[in-house]
Amino acid sequence: MDPLLTGEQAALGAVLLDPRQLDGLDWLEPRDFYRPGHQALFAALRKLRAEGHPALGTEEVASLAWLTDTLAEASQHVRGLTASYLHALAAVCPRPAHAPLYGRMVLEGSIRRTVTEHADRLLAVAREDAGQHEVHGTATQADVLAGVLNDLATRWGTHSRATALRTPTLPTAVEPPAAAQVGNEQFLLSLLVHQNGAIEEVFDWLRPQDFAHPGHGQLYRCLGALHHRGEPIDPVTTLWEVQRRGLLAEGTLTEEQLAPVLRDGAAGSAEWLGEQLLRSSLTRAAAGAALQIAAHADERRLAPGQLIGHALHALGPLEELRARWRTATSPPTPPPRPDPGQAARVQAALARSPTRPGTRANPTPSHVPPPAPGPQRVHGHTSPRHFHRSSM
């Protein structure tokens, strides 16, 4: 027995038995039903209500005309509906007064399907962008998914806020890194080690978690620590920092992985290589978030509000990555252009300013003593200002 199917049948049966129950289902839409026949029936019921069907004005059990007109209207949009099926729907409903609760069951199923559908789209677009070295489609689909989650939160009547699972057991990794990806990361690390000052090009926006290989991410963390402390980066200091952090001892890095980085010099643009890594990290994070959201939607023990909150939380790291991507790819902000008329306006304003009474344009401080008499030069010799004739 499918609980969702039973809930849809009970909701429709309640309205077929008591048309007035539609008043408590204004928040439910035909697209919320899973089966196309159920969607057509609910749309027909809403249309008859909007047209003021006579069955809505009576407090008695729905008339046969209500069932007949509903079937006729729905049959114009979908095939396979019969009068016997409408009677079966009415038989499934135990109590028509419980229609709002049956409707919430329908809405909950719709929320799970909608979240799963958009998560699958994000996963497909992220994988396609990863193959084409693009990120625009991934960013757009992530925005669409976030908007859908906010809309679903409003419909369900919950707050649209991210909440984390207490015991996360859902998948986080997507696929192991390809050999080409590992090679690109190794080349960038070698460049950062051997090219003086290269890390300054990527330090502000590239993070260790952007590396697909965990060992490469820890090695980049070592380089970042050296740069942060203002220490030089070269093969010797890098090896010393790796040893201090115990990366070789604990197996995070192997000598086979570290040796090419320290031994082989590299030349190129660290900024360009870093952008390639960040692009791969963004699509990889989007695919991972999509897998987590789909797993959340499949967890029936999560209420719709919890599902929406956990899905928004899964998108959080992706948004942080997108912010760093914008920082890395945005052109530098040009300095403000000097205003040629600013100096003239300042001078004009000073000229219009009245001079306060009792002041002069260039006052001479009264406390400054007059200049002391200095020596005079006579015929090329320095002599006192006052001298006696007898000395001549």
Rank of each mutant, 00 (worst) to 15 (best):
L239P: 01
H367M: 04
R324A: 10
P335W: 06
R360D: 12
A297K: 05
A328S: 14
G268V: 01
D264Q: 14
G268R: 02
L277A: 07
R301P: 01
P340C: 06
V368D: 02
A267N: 02
A343D: 11
R301M: 08
L350C: 13
L315Q: 09
L321C: 04
L291V: 10
E250T: 11
L302Y: 15
R245K: 10
G265T: 06
Q257S: 11
P335T: 14
V346C: 04
H367F: 14
A295G: 00
T254E: 05
A286K: 07
R244S: 05
L350V: 13
T364P: 00
P365T: 06
V378K: 13
S366A: 15
A343I: 09
L312C: 03
A323W: 01
I293N: 03
A344D: 13
R322C: 00
G309T: 02
L278P: 00
S330R: 12
G309Q: 04
L291H: 14
L253N: 08
V378M: 07
A361L: 13
P317K: 06
T364M: 02
P335S: 15
S353P: 00
H379P: 00
P354E: 08
L273K: 01
T355L: 15
P332D: 09
V242Q: 11
P370S: 04
R279L: 15
L312F: 03
P334V: 10
T252P: 01
S330V: 03
E241C: 04
P363K: 02
L282V: 12
E241P: 02
L262Q: 03
T283A: 07
S281L: 04
S269T: 00
W272R: 08
Q342R: 13
E255G: 06
